[in-house]
Design a protein around this nucleic acid. Structure first.
Length: 565
RNA sequence: GCCCUCGUAGUUCAAUGGAUAGAAUAGAACCCUUCUAAGGUUUAGAUGUUGGUUCGAUUCCAACCGAGGGCACCA
């Protein structure tokens, strides 16, 4: 990367000024009049030396001297050193663009990473919040994968616990004789029972007691009717989830269930109790006193002797490590569990210290509707599938007059719809909430997934034309001056690195949107394929490089590219 | 009450302590006899309030105002 080279040059240059380590930045100024790269090193250094910043900047400029990397170096503003990179440098990068372009060589990423995301619960709906988790998790997986890490994808699902118990209890409570033990409405039956069960627990304490009993039966599997409802309901859910994953293009290596993590977690907590990491709470529960670490107390084993979510998460860490000796474990969840996670990780640090150090919790905001919070407990949800379907309908409407084969249409509808949804999630930083506005998320103008896909498709169309007309790529004849497009292509590795280091796919989305805009501008100003123009081979090469970058970038966002749209 | 997040154009989002705070949408005006107009060009508009640290603050600190989330047997 050019940035690293500049950083090295500066570090060498300032050795004569100070022996101390100076932390300075090299950045890309938004205003290109301030160079391609700029450093604030003189501003930082001048304070230590007690000198005028501009003077220091000039001395650094002299020290760096002539270098074929730059066309010029300038001192500007309060003491910035601005680097104008020579055109040749960008063209050399362009020449080297291949399918691995963007991979950071220095990065130690032959790492083993296990990443846990999506995590829908059987018996409940797959709602748009899961879509959000999936978009972020899948993208992070691919970013790491692209850098060379060995990734295992895990989907952790709550197949036991009170939420499941209330579904089964509600069904048992309300079912008619002719439907004993069967889910008459399929998957929606379980989701309806969930809503009903939650409502009933609030109103009827007798029912709440019944839910607890059912919960215990689910764990110990002593009741055949409960078992039957449970097994068939879980199977329905999993089959349904599988169809969604297929649409989304996610393939999990392992599905892990709370029914597996529960017993393991319970054992870990009981051992921790002996070692006085955990203690007894009210009514025989086992708790972790977070207050000693500035956190709050949480129950790990409840008074029924059953493991809670907390204990299960400890078990999950151990099970994952048994399956895969990971260097890093990434867990994606909603941010409403942030405080909970701090306590759980604190407890993990005491009972499973090695694993706790390898665990990274990434949380995303909520997907909220303009009119209020979405909750599966009240039934006010938009399911993942219904959203996908609605967006697909809009794409269908848009392409209905085009001359496309059935296969082409199907591919376009699916890819564009998923791309639009994924992009609307990944275009902003993961931590904050997304106000989900239907009309805007399905608009395909401007800052959107289809905008990126369209730019790629245009490039493909150009490349096809070049092929048809027999114009080949070449760097023999170069333009007198390069454009923003060449420069933007050279920034791709930096965008990936930033996304990866911050666990933030939106840096890639941001980059690609800017890149697509620059390409669209280039496209409108230049005729790329022109047999009569001696610059045409270069323009085609540039278009090809753009294509590769856009394709790889979109892949990292989990968005498919199309030849036609 | 305590803890955590967050307040940026009308709206939805950007901005690794840096230079004139960027986009997109909605508005106004243009551009299809050049490779897909799902496109391009031009134009107007914003850092909640009050202090502090700094050569420099949207960014760090404090207080206040406002929004969301969490705080013992749900996940």
């Amino acid at each position: 990367m050019i940035k690293d080279e500049i950083k090295n040059l500066i570090e060498k240059a300032i050795k004569d000024f100070t022996k101390e380590l100076v932390s300075f930045s090299v950045e890309m100024p938004s205003d290109k009049n301030n160079g391609d790269y700029s450093t604030n090193v003189a501003l930082i250094l001048s304070k230590k030396l007690g000198k005028n910043p501009a003077e220091v900047a000039n001395e650094i400029k002299e020290k760096i001297g002539e270098n074929k990397l730059f066309s010029k170096i300038e001192v500007a503003g309060p003491g910035f050193v601005n680097f104008f990179v020579a055109d040749k440098v960008f063209i050399d990068i362009l020449k080297d663009v291949d399918k691995n372009y963007g991979k950071t060589k220095s990065f130690d990423h032959s790492k083993k990473i296990i990443i846990d995301y999506t995590d829908p619960n059987p018996f409940k709906e797959f709602h748009i919040g899961h879509l959000m988790s999936n978009a972020i998790g899948e993208s992070l997986s691919r970013i790491f994968e692209f850098q060379g890490a060995k990734i295992k994808r895990v989907c952790y699902q709550g197949d036991v616990g009170l939420h499941v118990a209330s579904v089964i209890a509600e069904k048992l409570w309300t079912q008619k004789d002719d439907e004993i033990g069967v889910w008459v409405d399929g998957l929606s039956g379980t989701a309806i029972a969930y809503v009903g069960g939650v409502k009933r627990s609030k109103e009827d304490s007798e029912f709440t007691e019944f839910v607890k009993k059912v919960n215990k039966k689910i764990y110990d599997r002593t009741d055949p009717e409960v078992n039957k409802l449970y097994d068939s309901g879980k199977e329905l859910s999993l089959k349904h989830f599988d169809e969604i994953y297929k649409k989304l293009g996610t393939k999990f290596d392992w599905l892990i269930f709370e029914s597996e993590t529960g017993p393991v977690g319970k054992r870990i907590v009981e051992k921790g109790l002996k070692n006085e990491i955990f203690e007894r709470g009210d009514k025989g529960s086992i708790i972790f006193k977070g207050e000693e670490y500035g956190l709050h107390t949480r129950v790990f084993i409840n008074s029924e002797g059953l493991p809670t979510y907390e204990a299960k998460d400890l078990g999950l860490a151990e099970i994952k490590y048994k399956k895969y000796k990971y260097d890093k474990s990434v867990i994606i969840t909603g941010n409403e569990v942030n405080d909970y996670f701090k306590v759980m990780l604190c407890a993990m640090d005491k009972v499973l210290p090695d694993l706790a150090k390898k665990t990274k919790h990434i949380s995303h905001g909520m997907l909220r509707l303009p009119e209020g919070k979405m909750s599966s407990r009240t039934g006010k949800v938009i399911t993942g599938e219904s959203l996908i379907e609605q967006v697909q309908e809009l794409v269908k409407e848009k392409i209905k007059d085009r001359n496309l084969s059935e296969q082409e249409s199907k591919e376009i509808i699916e890819s564009v719809a998923i791309g639009a949804i994924r992009y609307s999630i990944l275009k902003q930083s993961a931590g904050s909430d997304i106000i989900y506005d239907f009309d805007k998320s399905i608009s395909f103008d401007g800052d959107s997934g289809p905008y990126l896909q369209y730019a790629y498709t245009r490039a493909q169309s150009v490349l096809q034309k070049a092929k048809d007309e027999g114009v080949k790529t070449s760097f023999k004849k170069l333009p007198s001056e390069i454009t923003q497009l060449e420069k933007m292509i050279s920034y791709f590795p930096e965008a990936i690195l930033r996304a990866e280091q911050n666990y933030e796919p939106h840096f890639i989305a941001l980059y690609l949107t800017e890149l697509a805009g620059i390409f669209n501008n280039y496209y409108s100003k230049n005729k790329i394929v022109d047999v009569a123009d001696e610059l045409s081979p270069y323009r085609i090469a540039l278009t090809e490089a753009f294509s590769v970058v856009m394709k790889n970038g979109l892949w990292m966002l989990g968005i498919k590219t199309l030849k036609k749209m």
